[in-house]
Write a protein that binds this DNA or RNA. Sequence first.
DNA 1: TTGAGTGATGTTATCGCGAACATGATTCAG
DNA 2: CTGAATCATGTTCGCGATAACATCACTCAA
Lengths: 317, 317
Amino acid sequence: MTVSRVLRNRGDVSAATRERVLTAAKELGYVPNKIAGALASQRVNLVAVIIPSLSNMVFPEVLSGISQILEDTDLQPVVGVTDYLPEKEEKVLYEMLSWRPSGVIIAGLEHTDAARAMLKASGIPVVEIMDTDGNPVDAMVGISHRRAGREMALAILEAGYKKIAFLGTKMPLDHRARKRFEGFTEALAKSGVEVCEREFYSGGSALAKGREMTQAVLERTPDIDFIYYSNDMIGAGGLLYLLEQGVDIPGQIGLAGFNGVELLQGLPRQLATMDACRLDIGRKAAEIIARRVTEESVDTEIALSPTISYGDTLRRP
Amino acid sequence: MTVSRVLRNRGDVSAATRERVLTAAKELGYVPNKIAGALASQRVNLVAVIIPSLSNMVFPEVLSGISQILEDTDLQPVVGVTDYLPEKEEKVLYEMLSWRPSGVIIAGLEHTDAARAMLKASGIPVVEIMDTDGNPVDAMVGISHRRAGREMALAILEAGYKKIAFLGTKMPLDHRARKRFEGFTEALAKSGVEVCEREFYSGGSALAKGREMTQAVLERTPDIDFIYYSNDMIGAGGLLYLLEQGVDIPGQIGLAGFNGVELLQGLPRQLATMDACRLDIGRKAAEIIARRVTEESVDTEIALSPTISYGDTLRRP
DNA sequence: TTGAGTGATGTTATCGCGAACATGATTCAG
DNA sequence: CTGAATCATGTTCGCGATAACATCACTCAA
């Protein structure tokens, strides 16, 4: 018992015994068994973080925001990856919940019924992140992708572009990309404009895909004057390709991506984009969990507002 | 007890009761408590994976290799990030070991004494990955970065380059980058060549840094004819910069990076590089853990051989 | 001198499950 | 028809810590 007190800095222990315990522990290479500790105390200092992918760069950044905040608490993030598959999300969630974490941060608002039920039944704080177009189980932090698509559409129209193409990922599973696309086409439609070309990819090097798709749509429809990419990586690929072709950007063709990834800073031209507030989303989500764990109550719906960065590839209004 | 048997598919349970249990569990939203299960069975199906960073792209790929293999077992990876800090590594390791995982996969061979002691004392399989220049606590899977540096040096010399610069990360904490650099300079020295310029960065967008540093060294030493970058991202930045400047590559200046990242495929020219076998490292490491957990004994030292890819930026021999 | 207060340490029960063994029912070979 | 094997289910105990309470020694004010 005294050992337990020393190792947790709890209760009164004389300096002498504390010292003895500490040296003995070091000597024996003793590592306390958190499993037993958690079972006895009914507390687990883990926060389940469930995201679709680690190779998207977006998610490591969210994670980094989460870590920043949790580092000042005794909570620890544990990551699960779903590969954008609802069934895998359900499985991962089940696995994580069976460890009785102190909270869950999960990407997206779309989950299987079973997953949603588990989240509700878990009795722990749940923050759904990235997206705010929908109803959260508990709390949510993110941006409206529909609005992001709309705003980009308006900026493009305002800049005078008319023949607009959309290049993106195959979207059945990426709801946020889908919502951006929907918002985008909606806003164009209101001005009587229709996307004149669209192309979707999956897998492969995004940069290379951006090139290929850009080339493909321009071959089919040479008079395109704007291309909206569903992410910056393929946008960067397209930008590199068009520059090589000697196309005047943003005069002849304008370009925009989405995410505001750091990578863009090294490109020959700054691609127009929209910041997805990734770091902030992670931080805010972690804050909600941290507060909730300490019994405070908090705002549960936070919609951040991304702003357009015009870069060098979209004429300013 | 019967419930336990049903939920773990162990022992005999009649189809009827199994059914009853399953429906009851679903109805109640029952999620078994792994904490108690682990405590009772002394088995935890987690594998601790400890890596320096998630934003390096190298590590997500290693992780993906690990996941691929572990998916066919009942093991699950749990990731800890150290930010290249030895003390944080120690802390993360301690935290993870206190959950009594079934195995540890940890990047690098350099750890604090305490960390090494914990690994030894843990009594579970430990695989140190990425690097083979040193002595593992238990098993190791990786490539020799020293040799990678040497081989690149030889290829460069063979191609006839003479004024060679090195651009990389600030290395005190990135031992693998350091070893590559050491192998590189060593091999050059054997041919009486010395690196004529070197520059190190930390933080920021790697692509942008690659540009800046390339510009900087060329301003200082305009007659450089080869630049070896410690990773592909800064190499890509340098490549983009030099192409903009209208430099003849690989005639006037040759370039090479390291890692073989997918990104390169979308660049205007293919950067010379060396594959770090990331996916393979992850797979092999996971295999070792999986085998060991099932009592099989396995090879414990696996050195993979990366090969040079000449791309378009290094003259072929 | 006393007894309340505090500081340091010990004791016991408990967390929710699984291992090991126990039990009762059924099957089946000889 | 019997005894052994098999199947289905139940019982008991213990995993390694913590919560809650208990104990004992000591201090100090009234």
